[in-house]
């Protein structure tokens, strides 16, 4: 049965393999060109050190970023978009084309069980897709790390572009997009309808669920006096919420805190307050503590796992639905 699925999906699999090979070639070439550019502009140290700490010729870093940021972002976008492509071009036609052309009848009137037929088709389509996805993801990651803090990585792990292409997240999205396409394919029995509806539904679901993952990982909480310098904004953490607490530890509402902050910016005489005066004013007016809830960079992997669990779980539900519809299909 595997041979049947492999033979029927051969052209598609060869295309996938071609994508991987071409992708690998292009990325390797871009990466080596980029490393040459870094070396020739004497920026090598800026790859690992923050821009302000590394010694580089004036304007070299800016020129490099102008030349390379777009290319690096395209590389990221490819990985971000690949799950959608897998859903549209591999998941959606998988069963829809059979149902549309009536070739499912051939398999359904042999002794092979429908579920086994379905699973073999799924495996033969999905496993190579994931291999290509993971392969390209590693290649892009390898390229990005060569740019280090000169590239998009400087923005931290939690920006949409950086987060969506790291760790197991792309696999989760691909599973979901693929299962969504397959499910819509058996429901609509039309390849084109399944492809378009699949793309739309995937994009909507991806946006709708993007905030969910932050709420499912226990966040860390930091409470400091308003005068303290904090570095949660600079160490790559994902800051979920900030605000002020009064002396009793109660949350001060945003509007009230805003008004008090505004008030402290000027002295009782109406002149602008000094920095010390401002910071001293805050506890006196009831803003005793500043707090932040955040997810540190080191916990990003938890977010990725939760992401995989959400999208992978949805994918399993959709595949179960696909199996159910196929068993009832005539």
């Amino acid at each position: 049965m595997m041979w049947v699925s492999w033979r029927r999906q051969r052209a598609q699999l060869i295309t996938l393999l071609g994508m991987l090979v071409v992708g690998a070639g292009v990325i390797a070439l871009l990466r080596s060109t980029m490393i040459d550019a870094i070396t020739s502009s004497q920026l090598a140290r800026c790859v690992t050190q923050a821009l302000q700490d590394c010694t580089a010729p004036d304007g070299a870093a800016k020129a490099f970023q102008e030349a390379w940021t777009t290319r690096l972002n395209i590389g990221q976008a490819v990985i971000l978009g690949l799950p959608a492509l897998i859903g549209v071009f591999i998941g959606a036609p998988l069963f829809a084309r059979e149902l549309e052309q009536g070739t499912h009848v051939l398999a359904f009137t042999q002794s092979v069980r429908r579920t086994r037929w379905m699973v073999s088709k799924l495996v033969v389509a999905l496993v190579p897709s994931l291999i290509v996805l993971i392969g390209l993801q590693y290649l892009v990651s390898w390229w990005l790390s060569a740019a280090g803090t000169l590239g998009p990585r400087k923005n931290g792990s939690f920006t949409a572009l950086n987060f969506g292409i790291e760790h197991v997240s792309p696999v989760g999205y691909a599973l979901f997009a693929f299962a969504l396409g397959a499910f819509l394919g058996v429901v609509s029995r039309r390849t084109l309808a399944a492809m378009t509806a699949g793309l739309g539904a995937f994009v909507v679901a991806r946006f709708a669920l993007s905030g969910l993952v932050d709420r499912l990982v226990p966040a860390q909480r930091l409470e400091v006096s308003p005068a303290t310098n904090v570095n949660v904004y600079h160490d790559g953490s994902l800051v979920l919420e900030t605000g002020y607490l009064d002396a009793a530890g109660q949350l001060v509402s945003k509007e009230k805190a805003g008004a008090l902050l505004q008030a402290c910016k000027s002295t009782s005489e109406g002149t602008p307050n000094s920095q010390e005066g401002f910071l001293a004013c805050l506890p006196q007016s009831g803003l005793s503590k500043w707090y932040a809830s955040f997810i540190p960079k080191s916990q990003a992997w938890q977010l990725h796992l939760v992401d995989l669990a959400i999208f992978g779980g949805l994918a399993l539900l959709l595949l179960a639905g696909t199996a159910w519809v196929l068993r009832r299909q005539s």
Partner: peptide
């Protein structure tokens, strides 16, 4: 309902594999 992109020989093998 036959797989049109297979040869007759391959199709025979394919249907055989499903039985």
């Amino acid at each position: 309902s036959l797989y049109r992109d297979l040869t007759v020989r391959e199709l025979t093998r394919a249907v055989g594999a499903m039985n």
